[in-house]
Design a protein around this nucleic acid. Structure first.
Length: 928
RNA sequence: GGGAGUUUAGCUCAGCCGGUUCAGAGCACUUGCCUUACAAGCAAGGGGUCACUGGUUCGAAUCCAGUAACUCCCACCA
């Protein structure tokens, strides 16, 4: 059969993915096996695959496939998130392009558009994940806004309200003036910004002449005065908010501003007279120590307003234009207003000065161009103290393990300083808050509502609460707001198994808690922490045992991947170019847990090349003719089974088995510690270096010759297991090769059966067994000997085809391990190995450990070069010996260090001395 | 302002409890090879004062203290 020498992943990958789907090999049902559950961090329903997803889902798939091959009942549940704000803004934008304004539509009309949008763009990302090879149980695909999940959200809301953990209240919240909704504190991202600090003049009311000015100044007051009178100077970065000023505040202990105590000042331009109030909150050192107080537009000012009973003037509309509460600039945008007011203040002589200033400005996470506005508003909140209390212990006591561990700190810090969670959003796309308002005679009544799962129940409750049995369904009005997206995500590991609606059902009992959660550290608060809270609250069990935090995928220059920089490769294109296996390997090789990933797409080449290497190993083996040995005259009749396996092959097979066991031990450890890069690298080296470069070369028959049956079978068995080891990392190429190996030598019918019914993915992965280290050491020596011979050829320009002889000095009763002689001869192209007692004349020497090797040369030897080499080696070894001697001559070391360590040093000394002697005698030799 | 992390070869990283010829891996690089599995390859080879300073110790890449640079998280100083 003719097979291409280049592996082509395209056809192979599609073929096998379809096969897996057809056979429903990803599907899981509860059974007697140990469950292994992962829930996907649901990507935004309208999102497209980016490199972060690639990394995250590759890791999940590796773990899931590994668990499956360890005999567990692996269940990876996929799904998408409705992503309230993100999706709604996309829909709003798309409508705007069609000339439709959101608020020209009814809620239902808008939702129709949103669903349409969701169906059109939704789920693309899940399709893309199939290309990657993700072994999700697609039958379980969920959506945070599907029926089961929505019902769960409503139930939980009602429950928490009834428990007194959800409340409605007027608070200063973060407002997104573009999305026109409240945000949680977590959704605000602070950016450092270069801005201006404006120093404004607030003239003091009714102060014609300050009689004791000199005295006051003596006492430390700083008094501003000009032809128009006395004035205070207030520093602000936001002059546009002065229309909302209802006080000016100084610190009572501030010596600079004693003269202002008890006075009134005039808000510049606005002309409003406001009191000078006193509060220790004000920082004496900042600016002039005078603070303008705008209770409606700053959290601190709001608090001041509360303690000092100040009037609150809300000068902003929802979209952050100036409202009609303001005497000036009505309708103007806040930033335009800032520019204008600065000019106007300047013109009116009310600006003392302007300084450059750097401050932190909060931006909306979802609208990164939009600065949030602190805004006083009536919202729904979840009390977090209780949740912090239940969510902290499981992480601190390692019931849930974080990888890397440093995030424990971050987690604790957040929980210990937690604020109530603003869960209401002024959006339509999302779970509508199940609160129903009834008419109230008192216009100030904010408690005229009930919370219930359905409108019917709400009506019943409202009738009870009001005592008005005549309340009609039409009297009730459901709250217009939707819930924060994360209010559904936090239930994900529970709601996916219907554990909220259907507590104690078979699935939740079996699959929960999940085992591993793979996610990015930037959603530790949004999601990870809150899932732990929900898990503890509703199942009294943690939602997962391990959290693996991936790094941020950056480009090779270390910059975050972003659309605007255009530095993010298209994952689909990458997979087309390098194969999904190649990209997976590229991702994993660069991704040690918790570190940021500097991704260079060139690394995918390594993965592609590796697939090709494996492919070609298959080609080699497929080309072999097998000699069953029966025809071989050497077989004697005593042997029941014909065995014509040469010793070299027998040794090679034994060695490869030992080596595999050894490497497997390491791989198992790596998996336990979630060191996937290391596990992959170890597998890679096992396959490429040990198997392809060494083992296959050891057993490879000369061209045109057959291979013995035993070695052939052993080789297939080993290759087979290599595929099992590699499968979690590279599912496609391993499935392809595995099938070829299973069917090799089978008749067509049997091969067809295997191909139609079996998959590598539910085979048992090999586990490490005891291995003989001495044999491994013996082979290492042989490998070094081979390398020595090859190096000798290389450096002397000898052809690899020219056979050489090798003499190994084996004096002083040293036991030579001769098992590998045949292999050394074959791979070193050595005609014979001879063990001798002393040095050999007319030969070039090299050392393997403390063993001297000689290769006789027919040609003239470049004596000078040989001498130089030997002298360098001598110099190094003498230096080494000196450092060993320094230790051994130190009494403190000999007495203080453990016996073992001292013995090692003594051995080093003996070896070094032996080596020095050998080199010296060789040098001596050269002189003759 | 508080906290965490990082710093080892040209690049990306590993080095667990201080001691194995300990200074490693992969990639990149250099040299020689189209040797009938693979040039997406084979063979051989050269790269490092383990950020800096001090301390503990018989012994430090590893432990401690300090310094510097970078990164991240948290925080209401207008």
């Amino acid at each position: 059969m003719e097979i291409a020498s280049k592996y082509d992943p395209r056809a192979v990958e599609e073929k096998w993915y379809n096969f897996w789907l057809e056979k429903k090999l990803f599907h899981s049902e509860p059974d007697h096996r140990v469950p292994y559950t992962i829930v996907i961090p649901p990507p935004n329903v309208t999102g497209v695959l980016h490199m972060g997803h690639m990394l995250n889902n590759t890791i999940q798939d590796v773990l899931v496939r590994r668990a499956r091959m360890m005999g567990k009942n692996a269940c990876w549940v996929p799904g998408t998130d409705h992503a309230s704000i993100a999706t709604e803004s996309k829909v709003v934008k798309s409508l705007a392009e069609q000339g439709i304004k959101k608020h020209d539509l009814t809620r239902d009309q808008f939702l129709e558009h949103a669903w349409e949008w969701t169906h059109k763009h939704g789920g693309i990302i899940l399709q893309q994940l199939r290309k990657l090879g993700a072994s999700c149980d697609w039958d379980r695909t969920a959506f945070t806004m599907d029926e089961t999940r929505s019902e769960s959200v409503t139930k939980v809301f009602v429950d928490l309200y009834n428990k007194g953990l959800i409340y409605r209240g007027l608070r200063m919240i973060n407002w997104d003036p573009k999305a026109l909704t409240a945000l949680s504190t977590e959704e605000v991202e602070y950016k450092e910004e270069r801005s201006k600090l404006f120093y404004l003049k607030y003239y003091v009311v009714g102060l014609e002449k300050l009689e004791n000015a000199a005295e006051l100044e003596e006492a430390g007051n700083i008094i501003h005065h000009d032809e128009k009178g006395y004035y205070a100077v207030v520093a602000t970065t936001r002059p546009e908010t002065i229309m909302g000023d209802t006080a000016m505040c100084v610190n009572p202990k501030d010596p600079k501003n004693q003269w202002l105590r008890g006075r009134k000042v005039i808000v510049p331009l606005v002309g409003r007279e406001v009191n000078v109030i006193e509060d220790r909150y004000v920082d004496i050192e900042f600016g002039t120590g005078c603070l303008k107080v705008t209770p409606a537009h700053d959290v601190n000012d709001y608090n001041l307003g509360k303690t000092h009973n100040l009037e609150t003037i809300d000068i902003f509309n929802a979209d952050a234009t100036i409202s009609d509460q303001s005497p000036l600039y009505v309708g103007m945008d806040r930033f335009a207003c800032r520019k204008q007011i600065a000019k106007d203040l300047e013109a009116a002589g009310l600006m003392e000065k302007v300084e450059d200033y750097t401050n932190n400005v909060g931006y909306s996470q979802r609208n990164p161009d939009t600065a949030v506005e602190p805004r006083l508003s009536l919202q729904w909140f979840l009390k977090m103290k209780h949740f912090a209390d239940i969510a902290l212990p499981p992480v601190m006591n390692d019931e849930i393990k974080f990888y890397p561990e440093k995030y424990k700190n971050t987690y604790r810090q957040w929980l210990e300083n937690i604020q109530d969670w603003c869960i209401s959003r002024q959006l339509w796309w999302g779970h509508r808050i199940p609160a129903y308002y009834y008419p109230s005679s008192n216009p100030d009544d904010t408690e005229n509502f009930v919370v219930a799962e359905t409108a019917e129940q709400a009506l019943e409750l409202a009738r009870q609460k009001t005592g008005n049995a005549n309340l009609q369904p039409s009297d009730l009005r459901q709250d217009e707001d939707a819930l924060d997206t994360w209010f559904s995500s936090w239930l994900w590991p529970i709601s996916l198994f219907d554990g909220i609606n259907n507590p104690g059902n078979k699935e939740i009992e079996y699959y929960y808690p999940t085992v591993d959660l793979i996610t990015a550290p930037d959603i530790i608060f949004f999601w990870v922490a809150r899932m732990i809270m929900a898990g503890e609250e509703y199942l009294h069990k943690v939602p997962f045992r391990n959290v693996y935090f991936t790094g941020v995928v950056r480009d090779k220059l270390g910059r975050k991947m972003s659309k605007s920089l255009g530095n993010s490769p298209d994952p689909i294109k990458l997979m087309e170019q390098y194969g999904a296996d190649g990209v997976r390997m590229g991702m994993l090789l660069t991704a040690p847990a918790g570190n940021d990933i500097l991704f260079d797409e060139k690394i995918c080449e390594q993965g592609r090349n590796f697939s090709n290497k494996l492919w070609n190993a298959l080609r080699l083996i497929m080309g072999w003719q097998v000699d069953d040995g029966t025809k071989n005259g050497e077989n004697n009749e005593k042997t029941a089974i014909a065995n014509n396996q040469p010793t070299t092959n027998e040794v090679a097979v034994q060695w490869m088995e030992q080596r595999m066991a050894q490497v497997l031990e390491g791989i198992e450890k790596d998996f336990e510690q979630y060191r996937l890069s290391e596990a992959l690298m170890a597998s890679y080296k096992l396959a490429w270096d040990d198997f392809c470069s060494w083992y296959l070369e050891m057993v490879k028959p000369p061209f045109g010759q057959p291979i013995d049956r035993e070695t052939y079978d052993a080789t297939i068995s080993i290759f087979n297991r290599l595929m099992l080891i590699l499968h979690p990392f590279m599912p496609f190429v391993t499935e392809e090769i595995w099938h070829a190996l299973q069917t090799m030598g089978k008749d067509d019918e049997k091969a067809a059966f295997i191909n139609a019914n079996y998959s590598i993915m539910n085979q048992h992965a090999p586990t490490s067994v005891f291995y003989d280290e001495r044999m491994l050491d013996g082979c290492d020596t042989a490998r070094e000997m081979i390398a020595g011979v090859r190096n000798l050829r290389n450096s002397r320009g000898l052809s690899p085809k020219e056979q050489l002889e090798l003499f190994v000095v084996c004096g002083d009763g040293k036991q030579a391990d001769k098992r590998f002689d045949g292999i050394v001869c074959k791979l070193g192209n050595v005609s014979k190995i001879e063990y001798v007692d002393s040095k050999v004349d007319g030969a070039i020497s090299f050392m393997v450990g403390t063993t001297e090797c000689f290769v006789p040369m027919k040609q003239n030897i470049d004596l000078e070069a040989e001498r130089k080499k030997l002298e360098d080696d001598l110099h190094y070894t003498e230096g080494f010996l000196a450092s060993v001697m320094k230790k051994l001559n130190n009494e403190k070391f000999v007495n203080g260090a453990p016996e073992k360590v001292v013995a090692v040093e003594r051995k080093k000394k003996a070896d070094a001395e032996q080596k020095i002697a050998a080199i010296k005698s060789q040098l001596e030799n050269l002189k003759q």
